[in-house]
Design a protein around this nucleic acid. Structure first.
Lengths: 127, 127
DNA sequence: TCCATAGTTCATATGTTGCGAACTATTGAA
DNA sequence: TTCAATAGTTCGCAACATATGAACTATGGA
């Protein structure tokens, strides 16, 4: 098993960060990690908003996040402890992460609102 | 020639924006468009920082930016007039674009600094 | 030593990207 | 009108990337 790669802060690239966060599954994982003050294991995410993620896929997603410099993964016994590196990134790329996470929240809220509207429209048409 | 696709503001996704801007060529194009108050043609970018971009590739890049909702392309005679949609995006995803563009600037500055350091190190070793 | 659990890696099928060649659209000149 | 020039787009294919089941590795406990 090859050692895990964690780029040093100056080797982190914008391209890498944006690419990593341009996938909704990875964005969801990262949002959870960045939003909590303790670590998460990989298998905490085998289920993401009603969608099952195969563990090999999950492992790849964590690798992308890790190698983009967004998270740090440390083995802790049989499992992994994954934490966000947001403080470091904030230092190098101020307000980038916050803006991206906020945008994801906006989009999530808009979608929920659209879905609700659609649902009530169905109800009125049916009734 | 199929008509150009411009998503309406509510159909613009964060994934799409991040993916579009995760490519350095596209980020450079977008930065130029967003930073000027007049439009640019595609062929203005056949050369980007000493690198030649084939026009078919350039056309694809513009398509990605356009379909992500980042730019608007309008035919003007024989050429295209490309303008950024940053005002609209700012409204939906506040400070996202600014943070991404700033991060790219930071990275560009850091790289230039690193290259300069390396160059002067070569000089002292040689002398 | 054996098993269970958590993740990683491999193989491969499927999807995406880059780019030369061929094409389309528009303008202007003959 | 026809022809050529210019600006972009589309096609086709090779190279690269991604998703996932199957096989594997690492760790801890019985």
């Amino acid at each position: 098993m090859r050692p895990l790669i964690h780029p040093s802060i100056e080797d982190i690239t914008v391209e890498g960060i944006l690419h990593a966060l341009s996938d909704p599954v990875r964005a969801a994982i990262y949002a959870e990690l960045a939003g909590s003050d303790y670590g998460h294991t990989c298998s905490n995410f085998l289920q993401i908003s009603d969608r099952a993620i195969p563990k090999s896929t999950l492992s790849q997603h964590f690798r992308v996040l890790r190698e983009a410099g967004l998270i740090r993964s440390e083995r802790q016994g049989v499992e992994m402890n994954n934490t966000s590196r947001c403080a470091e990134i904030e230092q190098r790329f101020p307000s980038l992460i916050a803006a991206v996470m906020n945008a994801h929240r906006v989009q999530f809220a808009d979608r929920a609102r659209a879905a609700k509207r659609k649902q009530s429209a169905r109800k009125t048409t049916a009734g």
